[in-house]
């Protein structure tokens, strides 16, 4: 890991609106090293927007964010070097093979010995036998796994995952769960969104519910446990009810 800031992610008074519509409002967030934060919320609650801000892809209107100790506004390239992102799109070129896509990203990230690293991550997501297949020939689930391989390629300090389990079969979800557990055990951090309560609660160390532009941590933001889980389930149910 490249840095030892106090927190993996530290956001203060974050605000973001689209036109007149406020999405995030005075939002505070901190993610310690070695933990997975799971974000729940109704559609349109701002989960993806929050991840896109953390990924430096969308600029917040107000507030400050530091990822791995680097300020998002003043050091965006340092932040990008330290994050891996999996979104709704694979960000892979369909006419290139998995290996070519990963070599391309390795070069953009300036990785040395990228060939061995590419093989390693493809094996990790069990796509070793499909390495030389064009991305367009892969199923959606396989493309998602290739996207995960892309995200972990440069061994980022923080993984930002937007509904990573979507489109994955049971085996792939299990591979992803193992990968995320290894990730946090090695001291790195993960922020992920999901609509799957059980999955989120089993993978996360902490869980937050986005509602009304703010992030709430039911159960006093403590480590997940049966009481906290029940509180989160109730909070998510309330948020979904409010979102409808």
């Amino acid at each position: 890991m490249s840095t030892r800031s106090v927190e993996a992610i530290e956001a203060r008074s974050l605000e973001k609106s689209f036109g007149e519509w406020p999405v995030l409002w005075d939002l505070d967030l901190s993610v310690p090293w070695g933990q997975t934060l799971v974000l729940f919320g109704a559609n349109g609650a701002g989960k993806t927007t929050l991840l896109r801000i953390l990924a430096t892809h969308v600029r917040a209107d107000q507030g400050s964010v530091a990822v791995a100790g680097y300020n998002l506004r003043s050091r965006p390239e340092e932040v990008r070097r330290r994050i891996g992102v999996v979104g709704h799109r694979s960000l892979l070129y369909e006419d290139m093979t998995c290996r070519e896509n990963l070599v391309y990203y390795s070069r953009l990230f300036g990785l040395k010995n990228h060939n061995s690293r590419v093989d390693e991550v493809l094996e990790k997501v069990r796509l070793g036998d499909r390495a030389d297949h064009r991305v367009r020939t892969l199923s959606n689930g396989m493309q998602k796994r290739a996207a995960i391989a892309r995200a972990i390629l440069h061994q980022p300090d923080v993984l930002l995952l937007d509904e990573p389990e979507a489109g994955l079969d049971c085996d792939s979800v299990s591979i992803l769960g193992t990968l995320l557990a290894e990730w946090t055990e090695s001291g790195r951090s993960v922020v992920m969104t999901t609509h799957d309560l059980d999955l989120g609660l089993s993978w996360g160390h902490r869980a937050g519910v986005l509602r009304g532009g703010k992030l709430n941590f039911p159960g006093d933001a403590g480590e997940l446990g049966s009481v906290v889980n029940a509180n989160i389930r109730q909070a998510v149910a309330d948020a979904l009810g409010a979102g409808q």
Binding site: A55, H57, E77, R80, L91, L92, Y93, Y105, L108, F109
Partner: peptide, 18 residues
Amino acid sequence: VREQEQGGLEGLLISPVS
């Protein structure tokens, strides 16, 4: 167009490339 359609531009924008 190809970058937009396949998300390549987004991939470039989240990589540490100026």
